[in-house]
């Protein structure tokens, strides 16, 4: 076992003996710190372990900076297809734990789609390994994909293998139009062979991003080419809201008609950002604060399963729940 992993395992075991709760922290860029928990930092456990561009796989320690990872990939003309939002100082471990995916999700898939394997320390400090570096692997349950989004509540992820893709050239276009028309149009375009990698509505414009060689767009009335900045504005989305207003993230069917209070439509219609004082009535709503908070809207049955799984990985409740 690597020295840093050994130290982390010892801290877990110690916490267990002292009945301490641990909050696993990467770059401390997303999840708020909890006063009652002791911080377990993975920052020291960083570095890229292997990267073979031709295998389309990169393996890194969890504390590796997202920026570093992306830079190394860019040098070989590759990238992370899921375009994780950069909250400043993010680590790849924290990114995985929060499972945030950028605007290409409807087209290229989400973070967990690119997870091939993880090494982790469970709540007993045992070093475990699931999956591997293979694009295809169905031996055993898919624990490494399941734990994407676990936000440090189940196990400490020490190492990750991710599938990477070639860097592609992307061009953004926009058309001025009403939101309801844009929602239909983006869904229509996504059903054509135009190689989209983004479709959103923001500030009165329908924006769409196209990859690689594609038919000329600007010969159509009202279509203009713009730079790719808008995708950074939307990912992560941090608008300035008037006092009293809160930002809500809604995950919906992509063709859902306009929702009141929407200030941006992302993910080809399947994400709506709503500014309002009160929680919108909807099954998949998350309050999107400055910091990243969980949603807690599971039914009883699913809650029970999640609690059961938590016990499997962390029987003594060392890791903080979220």
């Amino acid at each position: 076992m690597e020295q840093t992993v050994k130290l982390l395992a010892e801290q877990i075991q110690q916490a267990r003996h002292e009945n301490q709760t641990l909050q696993i922290v990467g770059g401390n860029s997303k999840v708020p710190l909890n006063d009652t928990a002791q911080v377990l930092s993975i920052q020291e456990h960083s570095g890229i372990l292997s990267y073979e561009p031709a295998e389309l796989v990169i393996t890194a320690r969890a504390g590796t900076r997202l920026q570093e990872l992306q830079q190394v990939l860019a040098e070989k003309k590759q990238m992370l297809a899921f375009e994780p939002p950069e909250y400043g100082n993010s680590t790849i471990g924290g990114t995985y734990a929060c499972a945030l995916t950028g605007p290409a999700r409807p087209f290229r898939g989400k973070l967990r789609d690119y997870v091939l394997g993880t090494k982790l320390l469970d709540g007993q400090g045992r070093a475990l390994s699931f999956g591997g570096k293979m694009i295809k692997n169905v031996a055993g349950y898919d624990v490494s994909r399941m734990l994407a989004g676990s936000k440090g509540s189940m196990a400490l992820v020490t190492e990750l293998s991710l599938k990477v893709v070639p860097l592609v050239e992307e061009v953004t276009y926009r058309i001025e139009m009403p939101e309801c028309e844009a929602i239909v149009l983006m869904n229509q375009l996504a059903g054509t062979s135009l190689p989209l990698s983004g479709a959103a509505y923001y500030g009165g414009y329908f924006y769409y991003r196209v990859m690689g060689a594609h038919p000329k767009q600007t010969n159509r009335v009202g279509v203009e080419a713009v730079d790719n900045q808008v995708w950074q504005t939307l990912n992560p989305f941090r608008p300035k809201l008037p006092p009293g207003q809160k930002l809500w993230r809604l995950d919906v069917e992509s063709t859902t008609p306009c929702i009141d209070g929407t200030i941006a439509v992302g993910m080809c219609g399947s994400r709506r950002w709503v500014a309002s004082e009160h929680k919108p009535e909807h099954p998949y709503v998350t309050l999107w604060d400055e910091r990243f908070l969980p949603r807690h809207n599971d039914g009883l049955g699913v809650q029970k399963i999640k609690q059961g799984l938590k016990k499997v990985f962390d029987p003594y409740h060392v890791f903080q729940d979220l």
Binding site: R112, V143, R145, P283, Y284, D298, V302, I305, K306, L309
Partner: peptide
Amino acid sequence: YVFDEKDDGIDLLAL
């Protein structure tokens, strides 16, 4: 049970 890609937290759909 329903496991949906819109669910929050661990990914039971993937599991």
